[in-house]
Design a protein around this nucleic acid. Sequence first.
DNA 1: CGATTAATTGACAAAACTCAATACGAGTGG
DNA 2: CCACTCGTATTGAGTTTTGTCAATTAATCG
Lengths: 225, 225
Amino acid sequence: MLDSRVLDRRSDPYSGSPDPAEQATDCPLTDALARLGSTVLVERNGEIFADGEPAEHVYKVLSGVVRISTYTEDGRRQISAFHFPGEVFGLQAEPAYIFSAEAVTPCKLSLVRRSALRAEAERNPSLCGAICQSVTQAFSRLQAHVVLLGRKSAQERVTVFLRRLAERQSTSGLIELPMSRQDIADHLGLTIETVSRTMTQLQDLGVIALDGSRRVKVQARKLAA
Amino acid sequence: MLDSRVLDRRSDPYSGSPDPAEQATDCPLTDALARLGSTVLVERNGEIFADGEPAEHVYKVLSGVVRISTYTEDGRRQISAFHFPGEVFGLQAEPAYIFSAEAVTPCKLSLVRRSALRAEAERNPSLCGAICQSVTQAFSRLQAHVVLLGRKSAQERVTVFLRRLAERQSTSGLIELPMSRQDIADHLGLTIETVSRTMTQLQDLGVIALDGSRRVKVQARKLAA
DNA sequence: CGATTAATTGACAAAACTCAATACGAGTGG
DNA sequence: CCACTCGTATTGAGTTTTGTCAATTAATCG
């Protein structure tokens, strides 16, 4: 898990057909990443950065899925967030990362040095605003997750998780689960067994239909409630 | 709970002896609040703002304790954070508040219009940085809370809660609990009964000593583990 | 001092966890 | 193409933790 964290790095844009997440935009942060950053590929389960390391870079997902995790002393893991293409992570004021980031699937990431971003932000106030906005967005997401963890039953957690995933993938009805049951469990504060059982419960209730373990067909009506 | 949200408001500095949180500092955000903001008093359990309202102001606690809460449709409440003197809250990019803020104890707050803060930030890049920093700080706290909610037993939750409280109050050994058991329960994702039982357990274990329900003497050594 | 709210304690029920066994699925080699 | 393996997921049985409901005690406020 610690090997081969950087498979490829270059400063020029990727030559293949452009992903939506790589297009030019009106977001100063995206622009800054495109102009000042480089690209890196990370293999499945590869480490992007680890908790406690100097926080030197800010990342954006171009393709693939990233998990943000924290390991407690006794070996338990909490995944506080998953990041999908277009999302920025690693943006923080602390000098060292306060969590680890790993690739759930093979990932293409754009990254920029924090110092470069900071220098650019000094010159460009709109970039500064965009950074703030990105951080508050992450904050809002986390806030919603706190409510999920604090107040909800296993069934509610799984249902909400699937619903949010559906919204983010905006695929009407068919969700691809890029992450394992263990990842989901560690995100929702449950065990892998409870996640599994809840999935089958939801299937028995007719809320979802499982097609293998990584593909879920959603009865949108029923999931909504 | 909805009545009398604003008891007093004025633009000039408070005339009494200055709290530490009101002193002039080298923090541009604190300065901006002092220069551009006004002061308001809120009574115990008074509402500061509610989830869904237009997010017009940014606040800083001068004295007292504030709770940030979210109410779910089914009436459950999750308190995602408590704010102590010197801390800023309500700083967000969304046009409407995504949670409510209420006074745990009678509070003196400094507040500034978001538009004023934004205008000032355009002129002053260091203020922009300070804002970012404040948001990332809140983010880090929330991140730590997610780990607590996701992965910890009732006993660990209460222990960590008390430890963090002790750190923030920096009162060696004696903690004042400004909030009720219900507040603590809603913060830790537990029931009031579990919180209460856990407290007595910790007392039986010799980790803490309760002096009434709102005062806790901490055996620092034992709480640390 | 009495009334009211907050906190604790007890007995029981429910939800989730643990441990263990089984099944599935992707990849490999015969 | 099939059998084997390894990692992942599901299912089952029993335990533990926490939640629920009810009763009691403690604290607060007039």
